[in-house]
Design a protein around this nucleic acid. Structure first.
Length: 216
DNA sequence: ATCCCGAGGG
DNA sequence: CCCTCTGGAT
């Protein structure tokens, strides 16, 4: 099967099964989304959504969070992964927003990546969800699903290589939606450990279907 | 025991 | 490239 034919089939399937695909993190403005995405590293969205309401209530602005301390923030986020690192990142991130970005979430990759706790994946999510840019954030789900379905060759061994390949082959207007298609498919169907191949309409394309192996 | 919408540092 | 961080769910 030609590569573009494969992409068309996958896009057609997701459009039919997931007409609406959005992030499951709860937020009401770019600042809150930035916090939620930083907290979501190696942690489920469900758990992040459990602890963000009081955090957003008590620290609603970059100024208020910047004036806090990692020790205080730690108590709000202690049930997510790496609470010590993330508490430092959140306070440092807010302080840099206030100092260097007029308390606004910046919109370029270069600026976002300067923020403590924000790497390429988080920066791509913000650019996509907040600023409607055609970026593809490659997390563990996107990476795993893309390889299983064969959207990217095995030579794409890094998230960056995978990102570039996907962006090159997915129509620009569909990239933000396709990002969430791959994540939601990875979270609920094409899971890392026990993928639900019998429920997957793409299992005909998947070389690993029915010979389920953990990981990639 | 392995994975969850990773990032920072060596 | 490697390692560390390090809570909760399965």
């Amino acid at each position: 099967m030609r590569k573009q034919e494969l992409y068309n089939k996958v896009i057609e399937y997701f459009q039919a099964t997931m007409p609406v695909a959005e992030t499951e993190l709860h937020y009401s403005n770019p600042f809150e989304l930035l916090i939620a995405v930083i907290l979501s590293a190696q942690c489920t969205d469900k758990r992040v959504n459990m602890i963000t309401p009081p955090l957003f209530r008590d620290f609603p602005t970059p100024e208020s969070l910047a004036a806090s301390t990692p020790e205080v923030i730690f108590e709000y986020i202690r049930s997510v992964s790496y609470p010590n690192n993330k508490a430092k990142h959140l306070v440092g991130m807010a302080q840099m927003l206030v100092k260097d970005f007029q308390s606004e979430v910046p919109d370029t990759l270069e600026q976002l990546i300067k923020l403590p706790g924000v790497g390429r994946k988080t920066a791509n999510v913000i650019q996509s969800v907040v600023f409607n840019k055609a970026t593809m954030a490659v997390d563990t789900h996107v990476f795993r699903v893309s390889h299983r379905i064969g959207l990217v060759p095995k030579t794409c061994t890094t998230p960056l290589a995978t990102e570039k390949h996907l962006v090159k082959h997915i129509p620009e207007a569909l990239i933000p939606t396709a990002h969430h298609w791959l994540i939601l498919h990875g979270r609920y169907v094409c899971t890392a450990r026990s993928p639900k191949c019998s429920e997957c309409g793409l299992n005909g394309l998947c070389k690993e279907s029915l010979k389920i192996k953990p990981g990639i």
